[in-house]
Simulated assay, not measured.
Amino acid sequence: MKNKISFKDVVKTYPMKDATFTALDHVSLDIADQEFVTVVGPSGCGKSTLLSMAAGLVGPTAGEVLVDDAPVTGPGPDRGVIFQQYALFPWLTVRKNVEFGLRLAAIPAEERRRRAERAIELVGLADFADALPRTLSGGMKQRCAIARAYAVNPQVLLMDEPFGALDALTRVQLQDQLLHTWSQERRTVMFITHDVDEAVYLARRVVVMAARPGRIQTIVDVDLPYPRTEEMRLSPEFGAIRNDVWHSVYHQPPATPAA
């Protein structure tokens, strides 16, 4: 299967008063078309920076980022980005929020409506299409944000801890909703999280990063079938993979300073 996203020997540095801070140090990673990959690691490991590069919001200091073998030079409609903050317009209904990107793209009204309703249906908000954000729960707001990303029909979804602010039960429900939607749409997903269980439950591969400087520590294959189920979370197979990822995240050797 061909690569959808490729990070080629990516370096990201930031100037500081008396030194240079290296956020990412020679990171190389390929994500296949239609693959679901999670990225997990300690605070400061550069996982959000990596996602921002794929989104075209941040450029590398060295190396390159490719989507469909073309260099990423900025944001584009082929990549939908979802952050932890919902970023909904409070004066617009769910439907109007989902239609917003389509309106900017000058999509005709009838087509906007059709695509918005399809996206709203996918995330299970059809009964709330005319509701304002203030009437929605946190989980419903995040589903609205996901629907807005889906409506513009991106080939890639870039998700930066989208469920991090939610309670445990809502988080699990949205994980299942996301996997259900992904099974129907089969977009390429790069999902940043600090939660090891979430990383294993969602992904085909878990990329474990190390900090200072940010680099890939290891990549763990999740050899579990889809659809993922609640029973699977309790299985010995899931537990073994989870322990492997947990150990890789929280028992890392100290960084070796670059020469």
Rank of each mutant, 00 (worst) to 15 (best):
N153P: 00
A211E: 12
E161D: 11
P15W: 03
R112N: 08
V58N: 11
I219C: 08
E121K: 13
A106S: 13
A203N: 11
M16E: 14
V67I: 15
I5A: 03
I216Y: 12
P15M: 01
A203V: 10
G46M: 06
T20K: 13
G214S: 09
L57W: 07
R134L: 06
A199G: 07
P253H: 08
M140G: 06
V249H: 11
S52A: 12
R228W: 12
L88E: 06
G74Y: 09
L179Y: 07
R205G: 03
T49N: 05
Q142M: 02
Q85N: 13
T218G: 08
H180Q: 13
A145L: 02
M209S: 10
S183P: 03
E231M: 07
P133Y: 10
G59L: 13
R112T: 10
L202S: 12
H180P: 00
Y250N: 13
V220N: 07
G46V: 07
L179N: 07
P227T: 07
V207L: 05
V94Y: 06
H251A: 13
F89A: 00
C45I: 04
K47C: 07
L88I: 02
Q175N: 12
A23G: 01
M232V: 04
Q85S: 14
V10A: 03
V98S: 11
M140A: 03
A126G: 05
Q173F: 00
L57Y: 12
S248F: 02
R103K: 15
K4S: 12
I216V: 14
R112H: 09
R148G: 05
K8N: 14
V40I: 09
L132R: 14
F191W: 07
F89E: 00
V156K: 07
W182R: 06
E237G: 03
L50K: 08
L29E: 08
V196C: 09
V222C: 10
V123I: 03
R113G: 02
A255Q: 09
E35T: 09
A145F: 08
V200H: 09
Y86P: 05
L169T: 10
A147K: 10
G41C: 06
C144Y: 04
D25M: 00
Q177D: 13
R186L: 09
E110H: 01
